[in-house]
Amino acid sequence: MTSVDSLKKKVALVTGGARGIGEAIVKRLASQGAKVYFTYQSSAEKAQALVRSFEKTGNVIALPCDVRKSENVESVVDQVLEAEPTLDILVNNAGIIRDGLFLALSEEDWQEVMATNLGGVIHFSKNVLRQMIMQGGGRIINISSIVGELGGVGQANYAASKAAVNALTKSLAAEYAAKNITVNAIAPGMVETEMTSAVRSAFGDKIKERIPAGSYGQPEEIAAVAAFLASEESRYITGQVITIDGGLSLLSRR
């Protein structure tokens, strides 16, 4: 499964690939031999550094993209397809948080989160599925969150967007299974990234105490599952939301 070239000749597109979980997924897929295109929005410097770190093999390419804008997404997918004969793997990872109690959330807090976390998945899936249908197969992996199922205090907008992603995942899985396309989601718990750094520093040990595994997850641990779902071996898994949370959701269900 971890063999160096198990994803050789595969072309992948990862959204929000310059940082956090996305970055780990880019590295993982690229180190398994895939040609990896990734999008970034605000992290141009980090994106360039990531591309440079694969200079030797040259199989990592960065493209700026605002995933909220469908025309922007369409041109990014077109760019990839002009250069590549296939697009085998799509990882919808780009996501943001605008946390706050429901009554304190502004209209903009809702729109931004829904447009990025759900809109981005819709736009990319639409454009990439077309190609995947014609080429006779593909893998779509959506990065969701455990709060999509559990809900979360101060995260009504984020949780709602991720619940929508889960439902979208299952619907697309059912619609396109006959074309050899699998669509799955990964629902991470508390992973050590920049996105979660504020929450972790504010509530630190309190959160850790609630995680049965006793520690935060690492981006690479999410990337490993993404790579498996991207591989040929996962052919028969579709429409699933795979939780990776050190057991956190087990206790939250009490």
Partner: peptide
Amino acid sequence: AESIDFLDIVFRLEK
């Protein structure tokens, strides 16, 4: 043919 196949055919014709 099933409904997705119609989409498939349309995409291929367009291309």
